[in-house]
Design a protein around this nucleic acid. Structure first.
Lengths: 188, 188
DNA sequence: CTTTGTCAACCTATCAATAGGTAGGCTATA
DNA sequence: TATAGCCTACCTATTGATAGGTTGACAAAG
């Protein structure tokens, strides 16, 4: 693996575990196997690293969303696949990088905020599409716009991940996901 | 105000704004108006301060919940009052202390974790009661247990607060709350 | 009363560890 | 020979925490 990619991968994991301000260049350096100063060759400042992390994380998500969208299944299965992304994160004891950055938002360099907002937009826009698709397939019953339901889903998944990771209660997470899906699924 | 309470109040605000690891004893000392070393007289370690913060925050919440429970209104109004607690937090650009601690959970002293779990339990148990009350008053239509709906509500509110505070999008927060309530409210 | 001892509450001064970041040099490859 | 990539060595600021001293309130003992 390219060193720059290696740095990004290690830093991403650290953010998802501890938050953007609770790991250091020293932590990255040790795990990557180079010296602290060498990191500055690739990312001059931590803020610059943060911007890059948001970019690559959004790109990773986009790949996943494209993959799911391309599956030969109906919208309900796509929504399930989306939820399982959060489930995987929980199993790895990782918070969503976006959610983690959001909790640090008041302390972040302002250059990072547009990338953060973009990440959430990416989620809600894709979700809205899938929900609309499911509605036209008579799978989902929506009581408001697809965009509104998308926002609720994203918020609930982020919150459920946040709480379940802290309490260690994976079953609660699963029940939340189950009820969220059930509440928009057409009965019968 | 008692100095110890003053310290707790200042520290609480700092946690809600920045997170538990992103403020220092120096920050508290400056705002309280005493020296850094004097803080250790009241809270020997930061972990000790953290435990106390979770205790007082849960106590504050409990007071609010008792106040709302005592209101001469039906369950739907109580749920509204509960949601407005999160709304107030957002307006003050503060994350919920529990949610903030949850995002820091992997870096926290283990002595703080039981207090954190207790905070979430307090929320879900009260919510479940109000939801059951509303169901028996024919105000709410629940598609699962009151406890399950309580978990979804808490997760969605925490997540919505997290995201809205980071993006500055208060309208999205309001729409999420509106749809959450609508989705369990009896039609007609 | 006055003295004595105790304690909470605060102080100054200092500590080792760690933070992000910089300066400048070495080496291999293009 | 220029540059990418990495290095050693170092810097300043800040972190939570400690040692040890000062002050004033208050209660018991003379």
């Amino acid at each position: 693996m390219d060193t720059k990619e290696h740095i990004l991968a290690v830093a991403q994991k650290l953010v998802q575990q501890r938050g953007f301000n609770d790991f250091s260049y020293a932590d990255i350096a040790e795990e990557v196997g180079i010296r602290k100063a060498s990191l500055h060759h690739h990312f001059a400042t931590k803020a610059e690293l943060g911007v890059a992390l948001l970019e690559t994380y959004s790109a990773q998500l986009n790949n996943e969303l494209l993959r799911i969208s391309a599956l030969p299944v109906k919208a309900d299965a796509k929504l399930n696949a989306y939820c399982s992304l959060f489930q995987s994160s929980l199993q790895a004891k990782c918070m969503c990088l976006g959610g983690m950055m959001a909790s640090d938002s008041l302390t972040l360099d302002k250059a990072m905020l547009p990338g953060l907002k973009h990440f959430f937009d990416l989620n809600t826009e894709w979700l809205a599409e899938v929900l609309a698709e499911g509605k036209s397939q008579k799978l989902f019953v929506l009581t408001s716009t697809a965009a509104d339901h998308a926002r609720v889903l994203l918020a609930a998944l982020e919150g459920a991940l946040l709480i379940a990771r802290a309490t260690g209660d994976h079953e609660t997470f699963d029940r939340i996901v189950w009820l969220l899906i059930k509440s928009i699924t057409r009965k019968g």
